[in-house]
Every structure is written in C-alpha cells, then in structure tokens.
C-alpha cells in the first residue's frame, strides 16, 4: 500500500492524529453493508431451525441444527397442491427460464443490431423505430393483452410461452446497437478489403470483439429472467412449470396454512432462489457493473 508508506508533512507534525473523517466513513459504510446483508443472512440462520422454534420466536440470529434437514425436505420432498413438485424441479425451471431468456435475447438482439448498424437498408430506419418503440412499454403495462395473445396461441404452460414474450423488448438490441456503433468504422472497412463478406465479418470479427459485452448482457439478462414473477405467475398454472421465484408465494401460502407453518423449509427455498443470481452477480461483478452502467449511454 503506497498511501501508508508516504509520510506527508502534516503527519510528521502530528504523528498520532486519528482520522475521524475516515472512521466516520467506514462506520456509515459498515452500517450500510449490515442493512443490506442482515436480512438474507438472518434468512439463512433462521432456515437452520425447526418449525416450532421459528413459529414461536421468529427470526434467529444463531445457526441451529436443522439446516440440512430443511434444505433436503424443501428440495427433494414433493409438495405443492398436487404433491408432484419439489425444489429440484423448480430450480431446473428457473435455470431454463434464466438461461433460455438470456441466450435467446442475446442471439436475437445481436442479429437485429448487426442488421441495423452494418447494412445499407432502405427500411433500416423503419426497423429501428419498430423495434425501439418496444422500449417504451414494459411487459407489466401490457400484461393483460400479452396474456390473451399467449392464450390464443395455446402457449400457456409451455417454456415458449414463458420465455419468448419476455424477449419481445428491445433492451438487448439497444445495448448491442450502442456497442456496435462504438466499434471503429475502419475495422469493417479493413475486413472488407481483406475480403471478408458480411457473414464472415460478423463471425470472425464482430462476435469475438463483443465477448465482454455478451458476458455483461448475459449476466444482467440471466438475473432478470431468473427473477421474473408476474409473467410466470400468469402463464404457468401447471406446477410442473413453476420456477422458484414464481412458486415461492404458493409455497409460503401452503406452508403457512398448516398449524405450525414450515417457515424453515420456505426460507430454505427462498435461499436456493437467491443463490444462483447472487453468485453470478458477485463473481462477475466487474462485467456486470460495466454492462449495467454503460447500457444507458
């Protein structure tokens, strides 16, 4: 650390000066970190207790003995109204939604953005506006008609009906368009002189160049897809298609309906629902932050 070895004149005069400012800063940051950390941590510790304790005493600060048991029951015991769905199935559905949504979005929006940015098309401007108008209206606003559309197409309780309508907004296309616009013009020109056609240029140059961008968007979209709630609630009524996030309310309700609510198991499921997106965000946070903050430019 450089800053600790440097001796500034002020410090030589007052060698034992306490930096009250820095202590204040750290105090505020630690309080903030606690505010953010405590609720999920308490969920974890509480999930390690048996149902009676949680029902009687509420959130627990210490680790109990039932952590493994609660997780095992939540993940592997069939539950729900039909007694056919377990945590593993919901976990799988969550991954299908998260990954399917992210991959689908990236593939479709990269292709569209490439077509809009790199081709001299008469209708490019029209396509641009047709696509980017969708940015104006989030799915929540048009939830009812979208549901009707899916129903008419017979796509309720299918992965297609779950994933594809979520892709029908231009966020990804917008990100990639912005990114492609920032790629130097000369790269495409050099490639043309080097004999690369439009498809070769896309595959050989543009996609490898976009790797970081793809990673960043994948993370954002994965988290977004994983955390979807309203749309899955409407589209999937068959418990076999429930994701963790969609199922959580049902589970909580069915657990709390009993005499002694199985809050331990419900919390275990909630934690399982948090872990994958949290891990992705924490481990790839540089890409994630870059993708998030540069997307608005």
């Amino acid at each position: 650390m450089v800053e600790t070895t440097l001796v500034t004149p002020a410090e030589t005069h007052r060698p034992n000066r306490i930096k009250w400012g820095a202590i204040g800063d750290h105090t505020i940051l630690i309080l903030g970190a606690l505010l953010m950390m405590l609720p999920p941590l308490l969920a974890l510790t509480t999930a390690s207790h048996d149902a009676v304790t949680i029902h009687r005493e509420g959130l627990q600060l210490t680790l109990g003995d039932d952590l493994g048991k609660n997780f095992r029951t939540a993940m592997f015991d069939k539950g729900g109204f039909t007694q056919t769905v377990d945590g593993m199935l919901m976990l799988m559905n969550s991954f299908i939604l998260g990954i399917g949504f992210a991959v689908g979005k990236i593939v479709i929006s990269m292709m569209a953005a490439y077509a809009i940015v790199y081709f001299r098309l008469r209708f490019a401007t029209l396509a641009f506006w047709v696509i980017f108008t969708t940015l104006l209206l989030p799915l929540e606003v048009r939830i009812l008609p979208s549901y009707e559309a899916i129903q008419k197409l017979g796509l309720t309780n299918t992965y297609t009906g779950l994933i594809v309508p979520l892709i029908a907004s231009a966020t990804g296309t917008f990100f990639f368009r912005q990114f492609f616009m920032s790629v130097p013009e000369e790269l495409a020109e050099a490639a043309r002189i080097d004999g690369a056609g439009p498809w070769t240029f896309f595959v050989d140059i543009l996609i490898p160049l976009s790797k970081t961008m793809i990673a960043a968007i994948f993370i954002i979209m994965f988290v977004f897809g994983w955390n979807q709630y309203l749309w899955p609630t409407l589209i999937t009524t068959d418990e076999g298609f429930f994701t963790l996030v969609r199922g959580i309310k049902q589970i909580v309700l069915s657990y709390t309906d009993s005499q002694i609510p199985e809050h331990g198991q419900a919390l275990a499921l909630a934690i399982v629902a948090m872990i994958p997106p949290v891990l992705v965000v924490v481990f790839f946070q540089n890409w994630f932050v870059k993708g998030l903050t540069e997307s608005d430019k």
């Binding site: 130097p184 000369e186 790269l187 020109e189 050099a190 490639a191 002189i193 050989d204 140059i205 490898p208 160049l209 790797k211």
Partner: peptide, 14 residues
C-alpha cells in the same frame, strides 16, 4: 487488388 493502411491501423484486436 488493393491494400489499405488506416489512420488508426484498424487491427483486429482479438
């Protein structure tokens, strides 16, 4: 049958 050298070189970074 031409070759071009660009101001910013336009090398393929990857």
């Amino acid at each position: 049958d031409i070759a071009m050298v660009f101001q910013n070189y336009a090398l393929y970074p990857h």
